[in-house]
């Protein structure tokens, strides 16, 4: 069941906006032909779907920011925050060093990192650069390089706008549901209220993807590839990404909620990551200073 949902999500997630417009327009034509709605209503739906598609393609950084804020509000209302200034400062220092090495270091209001006070092993990235990592995830990391791998992976999701891609599905669902149940005019009201409803649907859709269903394997692979690049540029051991996944395999029980349930199986990801590592990668020597400051932060949790 979950596998079917993931495959369906992947298929829908990969659909372009142009394809989405075709889907909606096709549905409107069929609805008109079968007498479900009038031809003028079908025309309204087609115009509306074109407008929506244009909006999706043209999501500005400012809009991404407002989406990211609200998705983040959902996360911090679901999980308690670890209000530990020292740990959060460390997290933001590490995060900013990694961000500077990413292909998208600038977002509307920049990246921000926050520690969640839960033993659940989770990490999330909301649009526009809000990154959350749980105490459970930090404790699972053996050193700073491991934690850098987790954060770099989440920065990779932001860089590729993966969370925003989840909106497409809800837009398609929303448009088709309106055609089937409420009639065409409801789709083209153009009111702030309708926009707020679409905003709410977009937030729910992203949250569902982040917290429950998870990203498609291809998206995880993209985020992992970006993480490896970022870590190499900064000087962290890129193989730490594999180490974290190996640790997760041992320490996180199958069927657990959070990070493990929202990602493809660790073995699949490791298989995807191995070819991305430099062929002549030499095991990197541990850095005493990195170990020291990571240990100090860990003791405050």
């Amino acid at each position: 069941m979950m596998r079917s949902i993931l495959i369906a999500s992947l298929a829908l997630g990969l659909a372009s906006c142009a394809e989405m417009t075709k889907v909606v327009n096709g549905a409107a034509t069929v609805a008109a032909a079968t007498g479900y709605i009038s031809s003028s209503q079908a025309g309204s739906v087609m115009r509306a779907s074109t407008a929506v598609a244009k909006t999706m393609e043209d999501i500005t950084p400012a809009q991404e920011y407002y989406i990211g804020r609200t998705v983040s509000a959902g996360i911090v209302n679901r999980y308690p925050v670890k209000a530990n200034p020292a740990a959060n400062n460390y997290l933001n220092l590490l995060g900013q060093v990694l961000v500077m090495a990413s292909d998208k270091p600038s977002t509307y209001k920049g990246y921000h990192f926050l520690l969640l006070d839960t033993d659940e092993v989770v990490a999330f990235a909301a649009p526009s650069g809000y990154v959350f990592v749980s105490k459970g995830m930090v404790k699972l990391c053996k050193n700073e390089d491991d934690l850098a791998a987790v954060l770099a992976h989440e920065i990779g999701h932001v860089q590729h706008s993966h969370a925003l891609a989840a909106i497409s599905t809800s837009r398609i669902t929303s448009a088709l549901t309106i055609i089937a149940s409420e009639g065409a005019q409801a789709a083209v009201g153009g009111s702030v209220g309708e926009l707020t409803r679409l905003f709410e649907g977009s937030i729910d859709d992203i949250t569902q993807t982040l917290v429950n269903s998870g990203y498609a394997r291809g998206q995880e692979n993209e985020a992992d590839a970006s993480a490896i690049k970022i870590m190499q540029r900064v000087g962290y051991d890129p193989a730490a990404l594999i180490r974290v996944l190996e640790t997760m395999k041992i320490k996180v029980k199958p069927g657990a909620t959070g990070f493990t349930s929202t990602h493809p199986p660790a073995d699949e990801r490791i298989a995807d990551i191995r070819p991305l590592l430099p062929p002549s990668l030499i095991a990197m020597a541990a850095n005493a200073n990195r170990d020291k400051r990571f240990g100090e932060m860990l003791r405050t949790l």
Partner: peptide, 27 residues
């Protein structure tokens, strides 16, 4: 330019370019 005619100027701006502080407040 593709949104429904008849909406207010503010609404067209919102529908054309989407989510902003007003929408966040409404949410």
């Amino acid at each position: 330019s593709n949104v429904n005619a008849g909406a207010s100027g503010k609404e067209i701006a919102l529908a054309g370019k989407g989510f902003n502080a007003d929408v966040e407040n409404a949410y």
